[in-house]
Write a protein that binds this DNA or RNA. Structure first.
Lengths: 127, 127
DNA sequence: AATTTGTTATACACCATATAGAACAACAAT
DNA sequence: ATTGTTGTTCTATATGGTGTATAACAAATT
């Protein structure tokens, strides 16, 4: 499943896992309807605890990215065609703001930041 | 100094403070050469501990945004005209990637994400 | 019938966060 | 020169998050 965990990172394991799963979905390598591995099997593959994977899955569910069906599995939600909700959009803004501010302070121009964003976007969309 | 701390937030106080200081600098309300308040006085104003402010200042210093002169104060570094360093640029990319991926998964198109970034940028640059 | 599933509970260790108090040497101001 | 402020350092404590471990449960699957 192409996931790598760095235990020495200052980013929590469950956050690393959530981020990488989100990126796999964004790249289209995981699609709506696909079923994620069970918490036990993925934990075994990654060499981490079952509860750590479980925490990541529930984080993804609270973000509206997957739904968890007890005794069955975690299923990726279909892509939303109606556009993003106001709630989700606000969360993205609050997450983007401090990073964009940091980029400005470190000397990037608006044009450079836009170009950086578009290069990240095209990198994810090309697959 | 227009800083608000929410103790009930899940974001650490020192991170809230760092983010708001960075945003003040990005907006031009704090400029290169300006001296930040002493850790004791700002801690008193915000109602938090001295060490918490100190931790925020050192985080900003490790990011290259301010320099701390012992027995003197914390001074904002002048804006970099030479452009951003590779190290800083890489950090920005790594911070942007998971958020952009999340935005895609939640149903935003590349065009919408670009528009969102530019609206945040113009909001910060207009002051 | 046996296995696997997500869930729940308890327990433990470790680290980050936040506060508190104290003391120090260097600097600025009166 | 004395006073007050500065960032620094140290110790101490409390709290919560993170991660692991083990166990048991009920529902679904095989």
């Amino acid at each position: 499943m192409l996931i790598q965990i760095e235990t020495s990172s200052d980013i929590p394991i469950y956050t690393q896992l959530s981020n990488q799963l989100i990126e796999l979905i964004a790249r289209g390598q995981l699609k709506g309807g696909d079923v994620l591995p069970s918490v036990r099997s993925l934990a075994s593959d990654l060499g981490v605890n079952m509860h750590t994977v479980n925490k990541s899955y529930h984080e993804l569910e609270s973000k509206g990215i997957i739904r968890i069906v007890p005794k069955s599995g975690a299923v990726i939600n279909p892509s939303i065609r109606d556009g993003i909700s106001d709630e989700h959009r606000l969360r993205i803004v609050e997450e983007l703001k401090p990073i964009i501010a940091e980029a400005i302070v470190l000397g990037m121009t608006a044009k450079e930041i836009q170009h950086l964003a578009s290069s990240i976007l095209s990198d994810m969309k090309e697959e």
